[in-house]
Design a protein around this nucleic acid. Structure first.
Length: 305
RNA sequence: GGGUAGAUGGCCGAGUGGCUAAAGGCGGCAGACUGUAAAUCUGCUCUCGUGAGAGUACGUAGGUUCGAAUCCUACUCUACCCA
């Protein structure tokens, strides 16, 4: 089942949270007798099975999964590391499979996998801490002015209100002595596989209803206990996550349990909206209704091969 | 039955004669996104119109005024208090 140009195929299943990506990916994996590569920025943390809606043990048994529960929240992990690790895994999988399934709702991770990121220098931790401290004391203006000085090109492009972006760019500039934008100008090596994208969609009201219901299921499944078990790590990046942030607030007595649950639902809806925005601009995605019969999905996949 | 307070856009809530289609918040919609990305950030949100602009709007009905969400009268409803 190689693609027409004889490259192996990475079949990406994308879409907003709670729309049924996991289940579709498993069906596709079984059909093509292949394996699943997760492109989800939270499901690889083994301590967070409930709140991240990771595949259940039963689902994991249905098809081989990679990048699920293979990391700890105590580790620092990020897209760059993911791209490196996932690509290596993919090379392995393509030795024995012509088609592999990727599934995930993290747009940046999907893009990193399929298109690649530019290569950036290592960040000097001291530089990072210094910048954070400067931001703390001098505010965002400091970041803006420093960037204007170190990388005027990027200064003209970035969202100047977004401190996260400014910090990252400055970290690269200061660690490497070269402008951040100069790294973006480098040629990216082309992928050795062909990418196909299936996007699941649903009416907004239907999607929101599914999200709300899933939060209730998570609570019934013991999300609160899961959150309590990881509270010592609450400042780690891995826990800047919907479902955890809000329940930490409940444990801090800032919110009632009911309020916290409502916040989780709301923030999940907003997250879904951001995912939709991200995927909408990818014109390669073949969109299908989340309730489409599998045969129909399969037909669309095959016509894209 | 009497008294007091109140009634503002999907919701909460400010405004107390012109600068008000009406602050702010919430909710919603749309967008950005290259190593924190389930993060971070931006715009829009009465109706019609691409736009200029027009129309409708601050409980209801009248009134005062060049001009009213803002002042007056009556009525309706809500909350609390007295009987």
């Amino acid at each position: 089942m190689r693609s027409t140009n004889n490259k192996p195929v990475l079949l990406n299943v994308v879409g907003p949270t709670a729309i049924g990506k996991t289940k579709l990916a498993i069906k596709l994996a079984k059909h093509f007798n292949t394996e699943i590569l997760s492109a989800d920025s939270r499901q690889f943390y083994k301590e967070l099975p409930i709140g991240t809606a990771a595949p259940t043990p039963e689902e994991l048994a249905e098809a081989p999964h990679h990048f699920i529960h293979n990391r700890s929240i105590s580790e620092d992990y990020n897209v760059g590391a993911y791209e490196r690790d996932a690509l290596k895994k993919l090379e392995d999988l393509f030795k024995t499979h012509d088609i592999v399934i990727a599934v995930g709702g993290s747009g940046l991770y999907i893009d990193a996998l399929n298109e690649g990121l530019h290569s950036f220098p290592e960040i000097d931790q001291k530089v990072k801490e210094d910048l954070a401290a400067q931001f703390e004391t001098h505010g965002i203006t400091y970041l803006q002015e420093t960037l204007k000085d170190l990388d005027p090109n990027y200064y003209n492009k970035v969202d100047l209100n977004n401190h996260t972006r400014l910090l990252r760019a400055l970290e690269v500039c200061k660690s490497s002595g070269k402008p951040y934008s100069s790294f973006l100008e480098q040629e990216k090596p082309p992928r050795f596989f062909k990418s196909i994208y299936i996007g699941l969609e649903a009416d907004r009201a239907v999607l929101y209803n599914r999200i709300n219901l899933r939060v209730d299921y998570m609570m019934a499944d013991g999300l609160l206990e899961e959150v309590k078990s990881v509270i010592d790590f609450r400042n780690h990046n891995a826990l800047q996550t919907v479902g955890y942030k809000e329940l930490f607030q409940y444990l801090d007595k800032e919110l009632s349990l009911e309020e916290a649950i409502q916040e989780i639902k709301k923030n999940s809806r907003r997250y879904a909206k951001r995912q939709i925005s991200w995927f909408r601009r990818n014109s390669k995605i073949i969109w299908v209704d989340f309730e489409s019969p599998f045969s129909e999905v399969l037909k669309k996949v095959k016509s894209a091969l």
